[in-house]
Amino acid sequence: MTKFLLSVHVIAAIVAIGPVTVAASMFPPAARKALETPDDPGATGTVALLHRICQVYAAVGVAVPVFGLATGSAMGVLGDAWLITSIVLTVLAAAVLVLLVLPRQGALAEGRGTRETTVRLAMFTGIFNLLWATVTVLMIVRPGSTTGA
């Protein structure tokens, strides 16, 4: 059962978190272009599409920590420092996404933003991506693991 849970956890991370990090990273430059050319339906359409991708995959991404906790429980490592650190970083990443990234994307997608909004959004997106990259490294390296990594 552990291998199944771990497989679903990893697949969910790839399928859900990957698109959010890519779409969120593409959003600020697309939003700047849309601000510069407000009459370009392609530019505004791209911004709306990227925001929708982030929203949908963020919701799907809830499966990642759910299956991660189930896997950690099955492996008996819920009390390990590396996993607790990963959980804290995951909560921080989710908070950055929900409280800082998605609302700014929404404002820009609705035409209620400025270039300054895109700059701050790029910063918050970078923080979100850095948090997820750190969690990924912790999941691979797992201090004290028996994989030899």
Rank of each mutant, 00 (worst) to 15 (best):
A13R: 07
I14M: 05
A16Q: 11
I17K: 00
P19T: 11
P19R: 00
T21D: 09
T21R: 05
V22C: 07
V22Q: 01
A23E: 02
A24E: 07
F27H: 08
P28F: 00
P29I: 10
P29C: 09
A30H: 05
A31P: 11
A31E: 07
R32C: 10
R32D: 13
R32W: 02
E36C: 15
P41Q: 13
T44N: 13
T46W: 00
T46N: 14
V47S: 11
A48H: 08
A48S: 08
L49I: 06
L50Q: 07
Q55T: 14
V56M: 09
Y57D: 13
Y57K: 02
A58Y: 03
A59I: 11
G61P: 10
V64L: 09
V66Q: 09
G68I: 11
L69G: 13
L69A: 15
S73F: 10
A74F: 06
L78T: 15
D80G: 11
W82E: 12
I87L: 07
V88G: 02
A93S: 08
V96T: 15
L97A: 08
L97I: 00
V98E: 12
V98W: 02
L100H: 09
L100G: 14
L102S: 04
L102W: 03
Q105A: 11
L108G: 11
A109H: 03
E110A: 14
R112G: 15
G113K: 04
G113F: 00
E116K: 06
R120H: 13
R120M: 14
T125R: 02
G126D: 11
I127Y: 01
N129S: 09
N129K: 04
L130W: 03
W132F: 12
T134M: 01
V135P: 10
V137Y: 01
